[in-house]
Design a protein around this nucleic acid. Structure first.
Length: 109
DNA sequence: GGTCTGACTAAAT
DNA sequence: GATTTAGCCAGAC
């Protein structure tokens, strides 16, 4: 595309790899890409992520729906997560550890 | 073109 | 253990 840095592209790919009914964190993706400290960039990348990317499965390390405001509606994110079998309470994922999906652990070879 | 802020995280206080 | 500081980099003013 016009200007797709490898970093952003990698982020999109990893997020697309997130299985249905699972969630991950920006830091986990950043860590998988080797830029743990640049977790912010992952979030920023999501801001320009295509709809092919299930950004609603990406939360902060606390399991909080930080970027819900970036969706069509701030409630859409929670709706989607609940639809996938993930319980969300107070904009936060319940049993986060149970639904957490770490690419470094799952894909990490 | 310098400054501020932001879908974050970890370490320090 | 909760709050603050620092680090990262890119876009907006």
């Amino acid at each position: 595309m016009k200007d797709n840095p490898n970093f952003f592209n990698d982020v999109y790919e990893v997020v697309r790899l997130v299985p249905h009914g699972k969630v991950t964190s920006y830091g986990a993706i950043a860590n998988y890409l080797g830029v743990r400290r640049s977790a912010r960039m992952v979030g920023w990348a999501m801001n320009g992520a295509p709809q092919d990317v299930p950004a609603h499965r990406v939360l902060n390390r606390n399991g909080l729906l930080t970027g819900k405001n970036a969706f069509s509606t701030p409630t859409l994110m929670q709706e989607l997560l609940e639809k996938e079998g993930i319980q969300v309470k107070n904009d936060q994922v319940v049993n986060l550890k149970q639904h957490f999906w770490d690419p470094t652990t799952e894909i990490g070879l």
